[in-house]
Design a protein around this nucleic acid. Structure first.
Lengths: 338, 338
DNA sequence: TTGAAAGCGCTAACAA
DNA sequence: TTGTTAGCGCTTTCAA
């Protein structure tokens, strides 16, 4: 149906090769031919068949991104922003983005494997790294290009961009301690998630540095959703000695915790302090606005994508181990400023 | 590098053709050959080169989805959930998902055009339809398969799934009117967006049906973000005769409105009623929890994708004009139940 | 039951 | 400056 090089060749009475070269503007084609071919190509509405180009070139100009989803009601503001970051950068560099959604696990890994082996993508963006991450292990061992948002404990060297969550949570711990809190609870996330691990670590160390004891009973683990933040905070508040501050591992859980506190009639920012991590857009508009740690997700997506494409193209990359400095965003959930 | 049919053929001492057929389990290949070929293929870690298959088959087994983004801080919970819906269904049916992010406008349309012409995808999922939608116009005219989430006023027939936003907002208007509100404000969204148009229409009609007059001065338009919801609600509340209820066109703006009200010291659900539309996960955990209209976004994504793939495959589709019945979710932002 | 040959649309080395 | 030829990896007639 659509015009091919062959059609144009027939039309202008030249060979396919010449047409191809004319279209690419090679300088060994006469200007007249170039002009002619271009005009005819335009008239015929020619667009190259990308599959044919790809088969020939043995590249796909496509990068893969497999979204770790968790059940249908999946809605993490994190991902849409990150996706916009990589998507826009990829487009700017002439790359397409192949997205899959797959829950972590066996099937996830085989999805990576299949896409690598069948040459569906030239490289991968990995998010939400795990302490022991089979995806990274696989890609390293297969020597396939990828860049991760997050680090891991696997012992192999690979490019990543990460925010220093350990430092971020240390900042937060100091903030809370300096506000005079003694009974501080922490809603962690599964320690297998690398970022969760770092954040927990930073928080504990931060409190220690301020001489505040973190009671094991006040450490609980949630699944990163606001629903679970609500649940975990509720159980925390039902203790005989409830905490005066709750730090959550991410904003979503913090927002759940705010609900829980309010449900018990507590005034957040006065009766209890609550903090998050991520600074999602919603954080600014929670009630009260959430004190949190900022993470420039869009920019991270952008960086990750750019590094990946440079690697794919074999260009040199200056920094492929970026660790971003987090900043504390003080709003109203810890009181003080109002 | 990776094994090809040729490699296997050489290894087993048969022709490429035979190997291909053996791998596909054709019944005109001897069982022994099939077994042998399969074994060798496994050993060599064979995976078909998809680009080659696609070039040959003239299909891509890929569906396209172009995300309308608006600036970097792009974070609409709507999209991640919708994406999960189409992504999971596509995977189940053996399709890949090619995602782009592009702000609405000229470049957006040319992105569609390029992907169609270069055979990058077999069909498109369209979201956030506009009253006059150039994307739909183009795809219709090009006779390219697509399914939309949302309707349009372009006069061409195409498959869609939509929620009856008009009816939903009518429900909401009745709810507010029945609660006794007389001074009701509405934060609309740009009328060019089809869903916004329907929602506005339904809201106005709903109030009329209850004999409540909707003052033009109390109708403002926001850009669907919580930030703008905040801004618009603030201006509404600064009027000499501020409204006693604010209905927003979507949840995000409603959440901004809640902030605005609280900033002015109003108690939401008592001093003022605020409502949304969408029932995003966060709605349940706003403070107070938001009264809204439920929209099963994940399921809609799933449906849209399924219809699209059936069409691509040329299978018959029973219902390709689905209009879903919305439901009112009463929580606490209008008072009453507490 | 198997293989030879053609072709999907394109690029590139080489020859003319 | 242009054309011939080969080939990317696969599927699919058609003939043996």
């Amino acid at each position: 149906m659509p015009a091919t090089l062959k059609d144009i060749a027939k039309e202008v009475g030249k060979s396919i090769t010449t047409v191809s070269r004319a279209l690419h503007g090679y300088d060994d084609v006469s200007p007249e031919t170039i002009a002619l071919v271009r005009r005819v190509a335009d008239e015929m509405g020619y667009t190259p068949n990308i599959m044919a180009q790809r088969l020939q070139k043995q590249r796909t100009d496509t990068i893969g991104f497999i979204l770790p989803t968790f059940g249908p009601r999946f809605s993490d503001p994190f991902f849409s922003e990150f996706l916009a970051g990589i998507g826009n950068r990829a487009a700017k560099l002439g790359y397409d983005l192949l997205v899959s959604t797959r829950p972590p696990g066996e099937e996830e890994l085989s999805t990576y494997r299949r896409k690598v082996q069948s040459h569906l993508v030239d490289g991968f963006v990995i998010v939400r790294t795990r302490r022991h991450d089979p995806r990274i292990e696989y890609l390293c061992q297969a020597d396939f290009p990828f860049v991760a948002f997050g680090r891991t404990e696997n012992n192999c060297d690979f490019p990543y961009v990460d925010e220093d969550g350990e430092h971020g949570m240390r900042l937060m711990a100091h903030h809370l301690a300096d506000l005079g809190h003694k009974d501080i609870a922490f809603i962690a996330a599964p320690d297998e998630l690398m970022f969760a691990h770092y954040r927990s670590k930073g928080f504990k160390e931060g409190l220690e540095e301020r001489g505040v004891h973190l009671d094991e009973k006040l450490i609980v683990t949630g699944d990163l959703t606001q629903r679970d933040g609500f649940r975990q905070a509720t159980s925390l508040l039902e203790l005989t000695n409830p905490p005066t501050a709750i730090a959550a591992c991410n904003d979503l859980m913090a927002m759940g915790a705010i609900s829980a506190a309010q449900k018990r009639g507590l005034i957040v920012g006065k009766d209890i302090a609550i903090t998050g991590f991520d600074n999602i857009p919603l954080a600014e508009h929670s009630h009260p606005p959430l004190t949190t740690i900022h993470q420039p997700i869009y920019q991270i997506g952008d960086m990750v994508c750019e590094i990946l494409i440079r690697r794919i193209k074999g260009e040199s990359v200056e920094t492929d181990h970026a660790l971003l400095e987090p900043t504390l965003v003080i709003r109203e959930t810890c009181g003080g400023n109002q």
